[in-house]
Design a binder for these strands. Structure first.
Lengths: 339, 339
DNA sequence: CCGACTAATGAAAGCGCTTTTGTCAATTGA
DNA sequence: TCAATTGACAAAAGCGCTTTCATTAGTCGG
């Protein structure tokens, strides 16, 4: 069932039916009713390709997978994508996921030229990310999940990574900790840099040191979390507390602590950043983990809205949001045992 | 830069250029060279919407998120999607992710009518999944990741869940275990039913019981894994081994075991199913976990190929694959302590 | 040397929609 | 009363491709 048939059934012209369907003014409310009823009855919905060709909009938001199997691409992405997709669906938009087989540049360039998407979402930005200026040049709106250095202001939604990790470190300092380890994500990632800055500033502000020994950085997996934490605990002056960038790192960190016969909380305090994914919940741990919390699912939802605004012509410079992060105090943070 | 401009630049007609670009025969190799060179030089790629409208194919494979925030949607999905997308990209196809806001039926129906996708991938099928007959009726090819009951044969790629869990149980039985717990996924899911069947058949075949007490089933999260395992361990006749349906459940199960002062391996044996995601690796655990292994990333890759075949007109009945699952013996499985 | 065929290209129709422009009757104002 | 306005619809022109069909020029066999 297409527009032509529908129009013929109603004894109307295509244009009238089209306008009735799209809520234009110059059509009598009487015929509009009839058209809408018929559309429902015949279960008509306009052909996507034709609509796109006619309007010049693809009705889709793009997101590009970095490479064949990128370790930076973590399971959190599912939650993010779920939020993104749901929110996009509410605005009648789809999410187009494509992979960059050759270079990332080429993928975006192709995406832009073929007009497959109206806007693009950039995940896990690096500190200086070449994708932002590229998309700018290609004239395709983009919203970054996170932040990156860029000559021109770009739309983004980020969480207050620096503030969150400063707060976390301050909490530990307040409890009396003096050597606080950081189990961070990959140092190329923008968020990791911000978190390190938060950790560092809290320590320095309190007159403490932030030695490189305690500044761990790697991909955010269980195994890497174990390795980084183990390295710190086995060093000459081990930390009495660690802050982890992800719940996965935290699982590894906890394992390293327990493996050394130490107890989480009473011996070594642990704080983890929690993105709110359901598969691993910090409050279900023993002891329940103190966390900095921000829902990545909600971020996904909001980013689709921002993308829609951008497509609607909103100025990227006015599409910049930094969300505060909650610090949730649980039982994994206690005063250190006397040195 | 569009086809018309490109043709004008070359002093050729649109049709010739189009045919040259699409590799048709009736164009001289000389002009083909020129056209290809010009296309490269002007960085031309055909407009997606126009191409789709003209051919009637959308060039996209669809996948629908179940609901607003579905607990069944686990982090493994990222890996699956990554494989799917990469493989699709190699065939010049995109992945369209859309969410079902209203009913799932309506989403698929809309997807089909709007012609936004050429085929659909179904994830986490239920034992009897209404989506399969629906898509069949809508005439849109679909390939299921997993299997489901259906009057007509459908295309699918599944792993040998039953065989894997039978093998796992047999390994434990061979070591001398008599009470083996199952920490399974949601019982509505097809794969969970198959895994239970594997577990059960191994036990019965060995003349052992498969009591309901040891047949745990819930979503595959850390927390649920803990809860199910704890329940079994605290029961009147606790198991000496558990088999977990996911690495996440296994993390919870291990925690429950340790919390009770028991040691994994020597006191309670553990086997987990490993989908091969990088964030949590069973071999990095202490002790390294024995696993049934099958890469979900590879499954995603293969499913995109199957979808492409289906679009190309291949018979769904001849697109059915069941992959064997490796049983990887590590240190978490040992003979039980004498009862 | 000529009709029949082939190779290479161009012209034009069509995919299903949106949107501009055109048409016609009914209404309005002085 | 009559030109001017308005309301409701139809006709038709695109959007940028693919593909069918038509049109040349060149080749061949007899």
């Amino acid at each position: 069932m297409n527009l032509k048939e529908l129009a013929r059934h109603l004894g109307l012209s295509q244009s009238t039916v089209s306008r009735a369907l799209n809520g234009y003014q110059d059509v009598s409310s009487d015929t509009r009713e009839r058209v809408l009823a018929a559309a429902r009855r015949f279960d008509y919905s306009p052909n996507a390709s034709a609509h796109r060709l006619a309007t010049g909009h693809s009705g889709a938001i793009g997101i590009v997978f970095p490479s064949d199997k990128d370790p930076l691409l973590d399971p959190l992405f599912t939650d993010f994508l779920s939020g993104l997709t749901n929110s996009a669906a509410r605005r009648q938009m789809d999410i187009l996921v494509s992979a960059s087989l050759d270079t990332t540049d080429a993928s975006y360039r192709r995406l832009a030229q073929r007009g497959s998407v109206d806007a693009v979402v950039l995940s896990s930005p690096l500190v200086e990310d070449s994708r932002v200026p590229l998309l700018d040049k290609l004239g395709i709106p983009c919203v970054v999940h996170g932040r990156t250095k860029s000559p021109r202001p770009h739309a983004f939604l980020d969480i207050d990574n620096e503030g969150a990790f400063r707060q976390a470190a301050e909490l530990l300092i307040g409890l009396g900790h003096k050597r606080i380890g950081l189990v961070n994500g990959d140092a190329r990632q923008a968020f990791a840099v911000d978190r390190e800055a938060g950790w560092r500033s809290a320590l320095l502000r309190a007159g403490l040191e932030a030695p490189e020994m305690l500044n761990g950085s790697d991909i955010m997996t269980d195994e890497a979390g174990y390795r980084l934490t183990a390295g710190m605990l086995d060093s000459a002056s081990p930390p009495t507390a660690v802050i982890c960038s992800s719940i996965f790192s935290a699982v590894g960190a906890c394992r390293a602590i327990r493996d050394r016969g130490l107890t989480i909380g009473s011996d070594i305090s642990v704080i983890a950043h929690d993105d709110g994914i359901t598969s691993i919940r910090p409050e279900a741990h023993h002891p329940p983990l103190t966390t900095t919390f921000s829902s990545i699912h909600r971020a996904g939802e909001r980013i689709a809205e921002i993308a829609a605004d951008l497509i609607g012509g909103k100025d990227p410079a006015s599409c910049q949001e930094i969300w505060p992060v909650d610090l949730i105090f649980r039982d994994s943070t206690r005063p250190p045992v006397s040195p």
